[in-house]
Write a protein that binds this DNA or RNA. Structure first.
Lengths: 356, 356
DNA sequence: ATGAAAGCGCTAACAT
DNA sequence: ATGTTAGCGCTTTCAT
């Protein structure tokens, strides 16, 4: 079988096969499929029939390279398994497809190298935008690296969007959308303090993660605003998982740390901590108060329902793609800061009976 | 500026720009970048320098069309927001990148049309495999539609993988990987029954969803195996969300349904149900026992820790990718059934004090 | 070891 | 309204 009629076993039909089958030229097929062009009705029908017969689907890569094609959008996160990331991904995904974009999702497991690789891949795919989400380590190296990526992307007609990450130097072609970690944590901690607590344990995330740091700053600031000086021994670090919360809490209990409330950097962390508390026979909030952060759907099913800070993750995802795609009249360098609000449920109360 | 030196403002450099910059031919650049070909060291260095200078990244689409290129893999699910799906996605994603594949993820929000559209897109992308996950409605139309897709994909050299979905007619070029919903539910329900419960409320999912049906079948079968005839009034239907569980449970309570245990079709559902139970002042498991399904990480943080069925979702995702990519010596039509096991925690006990 | 040329599957002028 | 001819950015013969 010659390499002309592509109707070979592989079954991968080309536009020329369809053309031959319909007795027209390839361009005509292209035009019929494209839709935007006048074609006689009879030809159109014949072509469509051929398409159906051959079960033809145009190669998207070829289209893309030839100028047409569905634009692509990349979403890079640390771990799709975290509820808050999943919700953002959902928002991104929905908005992207609503806008007719294909959407690549990649979890990097928090590995910076892997992340870099993936971004490079996206650049190779000529993605319309790359959305990077999740706290980072805010070092000079980080800023430099990100700036380079932003420039590369920009010069290729693409755009970098940072979500929940530290902004870069002004002038860098980047869009950053942050949610106010410090503000949320401040408000939450203020609420806890207002109940009368004076020793509140902070269960942090990775020490150098900006999201974790923001929340810690809020915790600190709230204390200082009341003229309080939080005991450094009351700050423990792990990551954002449920297991980390569980482990940290056990550890705190084992060390005999004294506190009447605990503020977790994440609902997941709070969830694990809660179990550790229960395991130790402590009642929440009677014996110790507990607060989380993120307001994942689950938070209200904890016992007691968790007081936490609501972050509009899904909306955030949607916003990210909208601004990334320039659906919003944007300045070259955009910086949005989304507000959050505390959701008061039952896990925080005044320090009561069995204070430790 | 003529359309020859692509070094225009757009910045999108082509291989020819690099070639020019390095004073060699495009083929040479290609060879250097490809690696698999002998090139003089001096040339190689010059080319690499040009690449660096221009910040050049080869267009993946062009590569793909020309025969090289990273293969792509598509993962289609209903909702990335569901923990079990997220874990599968994680597995898929990890294994795919481990195997050097790009991975497209798409949530269809349970919309069959949208799902179809997306599959078509993936065919256009010439994806190496399409993994479809999540229960479906098992009708003749479903089987027919899926078979058509499987054939299309196969004839394009791609492959369809069904995960947690009903198998198709033998001979269809499809791989299906199921986890044993019925078996798991049977074992779980047997456990509940063994505690002495006789009226156990079943909180289902979408009535026509095969996953939900499988779990219901297990529930039914476990009863029958004991010579019990479960009261049909004890089966309520909603979906797999936390809210559904909450609503259904309230409803059951409001109607004054009598039961001493409840078996939810999902941990999420169980979670919502638990809250409804608490809100009604009922204690678990003292007043009523509760069991879930999926064993999401959260399950152990519920109060009491939830007895449930473990499903190896992440492993499932990895397996799907592996078999899809034929890393497993596979028969043309493969059908795997993964086992599950019940995880006994504290939410199920013998019917006790305040039976309703 | 390197260049020239052909081709991948498609679209977009440019002709009729 | 339709066919012809160039590309798009890359790889891969086929020469040299």
């Amino acid at each position: 079988m010659t390499r002309k009629s592509t109707t070979d076993a592989g079954g991968r039909h080309t536009i020329r096969d369809v053309a031959a089958h319909a007795g027209v030229s390839a361009s005509t097929v292209s035009r019929v499929l494209g839709g935007e062009y006048p074609v006689s009705t009879t030809t159109r029908t014949r072509v469509m029939r051929a398409v159906r017969d051959l079960d033809y689907v145009a190669d998207a890569r070829a289209k893309a390279i030839a100028g047409a094609g569905t634009p692509t959008l990349a979403f890079v996160l640390d771990d799709i398994t975290g509820p808050s990331f999943a919700h953002m991904a959902h928002g991104v995904e929905r908005e992207a497809t609503r806008l007719g974009h294909l959407c690549l999702v990649c979890s990097t497991d928090g590995d910076a190298e892997h992340q870099l690789e993936f971004i490079e891949m996206m650049r190779a795919q000529r993605a319309a935008a790359v959305i990077l989400v999740g706290g980072a380590t805010d070092t000079a190296e980080y800023r430099e690296r990100m700036a380079r990526i932003a420039d590369s992307l920009a010069s290729a007609g693409s755009r970098l969007v940072l979500c929940g990450r530290p902004p870069l130097a002004p002038g860098t072609p980047v869009t950053v959308i942050e949610y106010d970690n410090e503000g949320g944590a401040y408000a939450l901690c203020a609420h806890v303090l207002a109940q009368g607590h004076r020793r509140v344990l902070f269960l942090g995330g990775l020490a150098d993660n900006t999201t974790a740091q923001g929340r810690e700053s809020g915790y600190l600031a709230a204390h200082r605003a009341r003229g309080l000086d939080p005991d450094p021994a009351l700050r423990l670090y792990g990551d954002f998982t449920r297991d980390s919360g569980h482990r940290l809490m056990r550890q705190a209990l084992a060390q005999g740390l004294e506190f009447t409330a605990v503020m977790a950097s994440t609902d997941m962390v709070a969830s694990g901590a809660l179990t550790a508390l229960h395991e130790a026979g402590l009642r929440v909030p009677a014996d110790v108060s507990l607060a989380g952060y993120d307001d994942i759907p689950f938070a209200r099913d904890l016992h007691p329902p968790l007081t936490t800070v609501h972050v509009p993750y899904e909306e955030l995802g949607r916003l990210a793609v909208r601004t990334a795609l320039g659906r919003t009249p944007d300045a070259p360098n955009e910086h949005l800061l989304l507000g959050t609000h505390v959701v008061v449920r039952d896990s925080v109360a005044a320090p009561g009976g069995g204070a430790r």
